[in-house]
């Protein structure tokens, strides 16, 4: 491990630890409304200031990190696993299975998602707990985003299947499942890793968009998607640079995560 990776690792641990220990670090709850001091600038009591309702931004950031940091990578992992499973099956099986799967992926991408999500929302009772709503949201994100990744992985897998080294492996008597596991999968890892890295920030932000459909993370729970949403209005950042904190934290988190884990790949 390089020094940079070590530093990144320490930072990453720090981010994860602080968000897990949010309850200890932040004396106030993310939902307590200090109604007498809304929109407070950073000060001793509120290191990052407060939001419009007087809620401590630091507490919200820490709790929001907990939600987003744990669930977005989990959902990204789920999504990549699904893409890989479907993509590799298609690429490896070839023939009509491949054609059918890719047609399904095309269909899936072009489906009117909004309607499906609305249907899902209609099926969930209105009185779900915020945590259940979050889990459903990220599960949906993970499950529904397989198609583009599966296409990429499918084409990778089918090229690898036709490769000279796969042929040689067969010629040396390597059984098919082992060929897949030992020869094809390791070569797909960079592709899958790329899918994973793209998915995390996308999911963090889509969670906020799903909130539009009554699916995302409901009040009063904070999420990075919601916190980042406040950045849409550039006029406010000028007034309170503390608003940038979630964006900075997200960037730090992603780059650390990447530098630590992609190093370990090699």
């Amino acid at each position: 491990m390089t020094t940079a990776a070590k530093v990144a690792g320490v930072l990453l641990l720090a981010v994860v630890a602080t968000s897990l220990a949010a309850g200890l670090l932040s004396p106030v709850s993310y939902e307590t409304q200090f109604r007498e001091s809304p929109n407070a600038p950073p000060c001793r009591q509120f290191p990052l200031g407060t939001d419009e309702l007087g809620r401590d931004r630091l507490a919200r950031l820490l709790y929001g990190s907990r939600v987003s940091l744990l669930l977005a990578p989990a959902a990204a992992g789920l999504s990549v696993a699904l893409s890989a499973l479907i993509g590799i099956t298609a690429g490896y099986a070839g023939g009509w299975v491949e054609r059918a799967t890719m047609a399904a992926a095309d269909l899936f991408v072009s489906l009117p998602w909004l309607f499906l999500l609305l249907t899902v929302r209609a099926l969930i009772p209105l009185n779900v707990t915020p945590w259940a709503s979050i889990l459903i949201t990220f599960l949906l994100l993970g499950v529904l985003s397989w198609a583009p990744g599966a296409r990429v992985i499918r084409s990778g897998a089918s090229a690898l299947k036709r490769s000279e080294f796969a042929l040689l492996a067969r010629a040396s008597g390597c059984p098919k499942p082992r060929l897949l596991w030992k020869h094809i999968l390791p070569n797909l890892r960079p592709l899958m890793a790329a899918q994973f890295w793209i998915a995390i920030p996308v999911f963090i932000l889509s969670e906020a968009n799903l909130g539009m459909l009554g699916l995302g993370i409901a009040e009063p729970l904070p999420s990075w998607g919601g916190l980042l949403g406040e950045l849409q209005d550039p006029g406010r950042i000028a007034g309170n640079p503390a608003l940038l904190a979630p964006a900075v934290l997200l960037t730090v988190f992603l780059s650390c995560f990447q530098s630590v884990f992609s190093k370990e790949d090699k």
């Binding site: 490769s163 000279e164 080294f165 042929l167 040689l168 492996a169 030992k182 020869h183 390791p186 070569n187 890892r189």
Partner: peptide, 8 residues
């Protein structure tokens, strides 16, 4: 060269 698995 192409008969060896680049990832192994």
């Amino acid at each position: 060269l192409s008969s060896l698995n680049p990832a192994l």
